[in-house]
Amino acid sequence: MNTVAIIDYGMGNLHSVAKALEHVPGDHNVVVTSDPKQILAADRVVLPGVGAMRDCMGELKRLKLDVVVKQVADSGRPLLGVCVGMQAMMERSAENDGVECLGIFSGTVEPFGNDLLDPVKDEHLKVPHMGWNQVDQTMPHPLWKDIMPDSRFYFVHSYFVQPSGPEPVAGSVVYGFPIVAAIAKENIFAVQFHPEKSAQAGLQLYANFVAWDGQ
């Protein structure tokens, strides 16, 4: 049986992620764990996250899981980052006066700020970006399999990633301006939205993840 490890570093929505992964079809076993051995032995790994970046990175480091996530990233095994988990994979976040992150992807995490304008309607946009928005699948990827183009996913975030490296943006969403909804490289896929809260489209993405070999 395959094992999917969800990294438990005390930050938020990991039970929802676990329930969604348990719900999707497949011969897999879901474990929620902060044990490096269990994480490194798993076939697939999810880095979830909700909350403030300073706390997230602080806990990852305290539990020595920052090193473990990087090892998983280098191992070729499928790794999925979700929301703040995705943001933690960048080099640096502007949140909490600046936080050094994992550096799995090149680039930074930037705030929407409070003066976000919709250039078309010339209206102020609310922050957080909260609700169901349409994701443009900007490149084909096994994790988009059987998900209709422009499907809506559930977002809730006040910061967004700004990649600077050669890694392709896998999905994009418009909120005032185009922002990154998904980024990919080799065995790593990361999403800004919450698949576990995105009804059918989100469950399909998790089903695709548990079937993905990382290629």
Partner: peptide, 8 residues
């Protein structure tokens, strides 16, 4: 509910 309904 959270085990069966995958919306916020």
């Amino acid at each position: 509910v959270a085990g069966q309904v995958f919306i916020p």
